[in-house]
């Protein structure tokens, strides 16, 4: 099962939106066979340290080889492609926020 962690700084409408879009896209790719965890580094700074996360927002694919992506999450397709995850073609259009 693919495991993902989304590290954010504080729960805001924007981070909620990112999480929802991510959830939508991962479901489109993996169905139910994935886990996604949202970690607020303000509340859980030690979890960020444990996973070596240096910035937020960062999405980490925990399965080896562990890979992380950070920056602009407005285009989730691009974010996932950076993790070598490709959206099914008919879902691409709806993946954009």
């Amino acid at each position: 099962m693919d495991e993902f962690k989304l590290f954010i700084s504080g729960e805001t409408a924007k981070t909620d939106k990112i999480f929802s879009a991510l959830e939508f896209c991962l479901t489109a790719v993996f169905g139910d066979a994935y886990s996604l965890q949202k970690i607020d580094v303000i509340k859980n700074p030690l979890m960020a340290q444990a996973d070596g996360v240096m910035a937020t927002p960062t999405l980490v694919r925990m399965n080896p080889p562990m890979k992380r992506v950070l920056g602009d999450f407005s285009d989730m397709t691009k974010i996932l492609e950076s993790l070598n995850i490709h959206m099914p073609l008919n879902k691409d259009a709806s993946a954009k926020e």
Partner: peptide, 25 residues
């Protein structure tokens, strides 16, 4: 040697938070 992550930018720049080991951002 640290894994900063793969940067994704839609525009020229994006605002992000850097986490210090001591906890501040």
């Amino acid at each position: 040697g640290k894994d900063f992550g793969f940067p994704v930018l839609e525009k020229q720049s994006v605002d992000i938070h850097i986490l210090h080991p001591a906890g501040q951002q």
